[in-house]
């Protein structure tokens, strides 16, 4: 336990306008403000932005649907597939990315590495539909 001794602080003596020196120093430094959107914004290597899917790698296993905390993903029937003698329904995910919280849980759990988070973050749009990602449906398998 360490006391921060207030009486020691008050011994140092008070002054009015103690910030003046630092103020003038700051005035001649580069401002911290980033000129976004007039200049590019930098994001970290690991930044979690918009989700992207590689339709070729996706097998339609449905794990991502089960783990997504924001109910972004729905599996859609796309047809049937013959395995041996049986006919199996094939499914592919669609993503309503307007509710995606970019947590990356689906990316972690997709065993086929079909998903990844890009660095794109400018997702504001007037048309919600433009954020529905159904690339995976269109690939014929």
């Amino acid at each position: 336990m360490v006391e921060n001794d207030a009486s020691e602080d008050s011994k140092k003596g008070m002054k009015v306008g103690g910030a003046l020196g630092e103020m003038f120093r700051t005035a001649f430094q580069r401002p911290i403000t980033k000129k976004y959107p007039f200049g590019a914004a930098q994001v970290a290597e690991r930044f979690r932005g918009k989700l992207d899917i590689d339709p070729v790698k996706c097998t339609g296993c449905g794990v991502c649907e089960a783990v997504c905390p924001a109910s972004v993903i729905q599996m859609v029937h796309t047809g049937t597939r013959k395995v041996g003698t049986r006919e199996i329904e094939t499914k592919r995910p669609t993503f309503d990315l307007y509710t995606c919280i970019s947590c990356g849980q689906c990316v972690d759990d997709c065993r086929f590495e079909a998903l990844r988070l890009t660095h794109e973050f400018e997702l504001a749009t007037v048309d919600k539909k433009s954020l529905v990602m159904d690339k995976a449906l269109k690939v014929v398998n």
Binding site: M23, F24, T26, I32, T33, K35
Partner: peptide, 8 residues
């Protein structure tokens, strides 16, 4: 004021 506070 902005410049002294490190803004633009």
């Amino acid at each position: 004021t902005a410049r002294m506070q490190g803004r633009i």
